Simulated scan of single mutants.
Amino acid sequence: MATMKAVVLRKPFEVVVDEVERPTITDPADVLLRVDLTAICGTDLHPYDGRIELEEDVVLGHEFVGTVVEVGSAVNLVSEGDRAVASCVVSCGHCRNCNRGRPGQCAGTRIFGLGLTFGSLSGGQAEYVVVPNADLTLRKLTDEGAGNDEDKLFVGDIMATGYEAVRKVIRPGDSVAVVGAGPVGLCAAMSANVLGASRVMVVDKVAARLKEAEAIGAVGIDASVTDPTEAVQDLTDWRGADVVIDAVGHPSALLSACALVASGGSISIPGVYLEDSIDIPFGDLYLKGVSIHQGVANIINYMDETLALIAAGKLDPSRFISHRMPMSEATEAYRMFAEREATKIVLDPTR
Rank of each mutant, 00 (worst) to 15 (best):
V296L: 07
I345A: 05
V8K: 08
A197R: 03
P317L: 08
F154W: 05
G283S: 10
T229E: 12
I216T: 03
M190W: 05
G61A: 09
A308Y: 12
H323L: 00
L60F: 09
M4V: 07
D36P: 02
V248G: 00
T117G: 05
D316M: 15
N301M: 04
D49K: 09
F112G: 03
F112L: 04
F118N: 14
Q294H: 14
E80A: 08
C98A: 05
T67D: 08
L138S: 06
G180M: 13
A165K: 10
E21N: 11
V90Q: 02
V248R: 00
R34W: 13
D242A: 10
M325R: 13
A126V: 11
D304T: 02
D246S: 10
E150N: 14
S252A: 04
Y302G: 04
V178K: 14
L77E: 15
L285N: 06
E150F: 11
F112W: 09
R340C: 12
L37C: 12
C41Y: 07
V35F: 13
E150G: 15
R171I: 00
G104P: 05
I216S: 03
G123R: 03
L114R: 13
V243W: 00
T109D: 05
L121R: 02
A308M: 10
M4Y: 09
M190V: 12
A223Y: 11
D304P: 00
A253H: 02
V130L: 09
M325A: 15
A126K: 10
D227C: 14
V130E: 14
G119F: 11
Y273A: 13
C92H: 12
V68W: 11
G240L: 06
V130P: 11
Q233I: 01
H46K: 12
L309F: 10
Y302C: 06
M327W: 06
A215Y: 11
T142G: 15
D204S: 15
T161E: 08
V78N: 01
V169K: 03
D149I: 08
G124I: 15
D18H: 13
R10C: 12
V202W: 02
L186C: 15
D276G: 09
R139D: 01
L186A: 13
L254D: 01
V15R: 06
V68A: 12
E21Q: 08
P28A: 04
R102H: 10
V244D: 03
T38F: 14
G182P: 08
E305M: 03
F282L: 13
M327K: 00
G283E: 11
E127I: 04
E339A: 14
A213N: 15
V261I: 07
T142I: 13
R319Q: 15
V184D: 02
R139I: 02
N301P: 07
Q233S: 07
Y302E: 06
P349V: 15
F118G: 06
D234V: 10
V59L: 14
L141N: 07
Y286M: 07
I292M: 10
V71A: 14
L32D: 04
I278Q: 01
H323C: 00
G313C: 12
T38A: 08
R324P: 09
V176P: 02
K314G: 02
E230V: 08
A208D: 15
N99M: 08
